[in-house]
Design a protein around this nucleic acid. Structure first.
Length: 446
RNA sequence: UCCACAGUAGCUCAAUGGCAGAGCAAUCGGCUGUUAACCGAUGGGUUGUAGGUUCGAGUCCUACCUGUGGAGCCA
């Protein structure tokens, strides 16, 4: 019995007989030759069976193979530069034996094109496709790299709850659940708990799913998305931007280093990723509005011009974000947004309370806001006033206000939307491909 | 919630108000170190649902359902 290996290890076994355990990805049969593309989750390799060399039994087994049949295949590894579709490239397998575990019949996803609705209905099978395989592997590396980067710099992972008694940010976007007869809500953010954890551990982060019941139908929204949220004691907005740009530049370079085959499958423009180096540009909201207004004046298409219309004090729409991001070849920070459009806990700018110490990071190529963060209000009197002015029930937030009563310190933090980061780095045109099972408006199957 | 577009074979799509079609997939045969292979044959339909107009509706009208793209909102 030949040694069982994974396709990812195939380069170390040229000339050897090996066994692979996987599935049939595609098959072409001719009079004399079988070409069977095998996948095993770690890669793809073309198996070749030259009929004059094969036993009748093996010919019968190979003939019976269909797309997605489960197989254990044994063969001799060959280096062949023509094997371009194999991942890694340039290897194929001369088949010597096949054990068929299960023959799949009528697999719905064919090598031809399909529509979005059909693919989403078959998401559990679509994940086996090469493109989805590439995305999920890059997503895993992004998560791994982000967490390692924080762990290596003294951040402690402290988990925050998903079932919460109150809103984190916007009360209209909550998923309400029945908690033994009492209303409870799925978390929109871990941030408020993060602040409690920060006061206990100094530098913390949480990473988990968050939920927004937004009736949004755009390529940039999910009902359930994963968010990484660091929170740091004694951190200024400028230091927060330093952290973000270092972390994100590091993640992009890690993906470039580890995932050339996946990026090739996705046909990602590598030059756009190679440009992502710290430092990133930093412009104020005031300047961003001026730049957008200039873009508005210059725009000749009346439809696009309408979307670019903006006045000081407005929050950015998708077109505004894209317009600003297009002015830079790497992500751009926009800081000091109007206090009125941001959350209640953001620290006002000294001497200019109409703007706050907030910062969003806009990704290039129209991918929009990938992080949002701020310095938090740490003065108890100001926080009390804000809570009152925002119509928030102080009893519900009593524990949060405690954080300003007992050893309050200046601090800052941000949230990074994982799927937007994945979509940007992979060059996806919709967030639904950036998460294994997307929860989008009116869809929760499978 | 609003705007636009769409729904026909397993999939992707055609069809001036006048016989329900093609490619792919499936099945069978041929051919070829193939790469979304190629060639031939066969099977495959309650045209999203309900109503209406008409001699006649996939096509026109009304309502509803579902999906896609976008807006608002947001990461």
């Amino acid at each position: 019995m030949a040694a069982a290996i994974t396709i990812s290890q195939i380069a170390q076994h040229v000339g050897e007989e090996v066994t692979l355990r996987g599935w049939v990805y595609d098959k072409t049969e001719t009079k004399k030759v079988f070409f069977v593309m095998f996948r095993d989750g770690t890669g793809l390799v073309q198996g070749v069976g030259f009929k004059p060399d094969l036993s009748e039994a093996l010919i019968a087994q190979l003939t019976a193979l269909t797309q997605e049949s489960a197989v254990v295949v044994t063969g001799v590894v060959q280096a062949n530069p023509k094997a371009e579709k194999s991942v890694p490239h340039g290897y194929e397998l001369t088949i010597t034996a096949v054990e068929v575990l299960q023959v799949a019949s009528d697999y719905p996803i064919t090598p031809k094109e399909h529509g979005t609705d059909f693919l989403m209905d078959n998401r559990h099978l679509w994940l086996r496709s090469k493109r989805q395989w590439a995305i999920m592997r890059i997503r895993a590396t992004i998560v791994h790299t982000l967490r390692n980067w924080l762990d290596d710099r003294g951040f402690l992972l402290v988990d925050t709850p998903i079932i919460t008694p109150t809103a984190g940010e916007n009360t209209t976007n909550l998923f309400e659940i029945d908690y033994f007869g009492e209303p409870a809500y799925l978390a929109q953010t871990g941030q408020l708990y993060n602040e409690a954890n920060m006061m206990a551990f100094g530098k913390v982060y949480c990473f988990g799913p968050t939920f927004r019941a937004e009736k949004s139908k755009t390529r940039r929204h999910l009902m359930e998305f994963w968010m990484l949220e660091p929170e740091i004691a004694h951190c200024t907005l400028e230091e927060l931007m330093d952290i973000e740009e270092q972390m994100i530049a590091h993640v992009v370079s890690a993906v470039l280093e580890k995932h050339q085959p996946e990026l090739a499958i996705l046909e990602r423009d590598l030059s756009r990723l190679e440009a992502i180096k710290a430092p990133f540009a930093r412009i104020s909201y005031d300047e961003a509005v001026k730049r957008i207004q200039a873009a508005y004046e210059a725009e000749t298409d009346p439809e696009r011009k309408e979307f670019l219309k903006i006045e000081w004090g407005d929050d950015f729409g998708g077109a505004h974000e894209t317009a600003v991001a297009e002015m830079f070849d790497r992500p751009v920070f926009v800081y000091h947004y109007p206090t009125a459009v941001k959350a209640f806990y953001m620290q006002p700018v000294e001497g200019r309370p109409e703007v706050c110490r907030s910062v969003d990071l806009l990704a290039p190529e129209g991918y929009g806001e990938v992080t949002g963060g701020s310095e938090r209000i740490f003065d108890v009197a100001l926080m009390d006033e804000r809570v009152k002015n925002f119509g928030i029930d102080p009893n519900a937030y009593s524990w949060y206000l405690d954080l300003r009563r007992f050893g309050s310190v200046p601090h800052a933090g941000f949230g990074l939307g994982l799927e937007r980061t994945v979509a940007w780095i992979c060059g996806l045109d919709h967030l639904r491909e950036a998460i294994p099972y997307a929860r989008i408006l009116n869809r929760k199957y499978p």
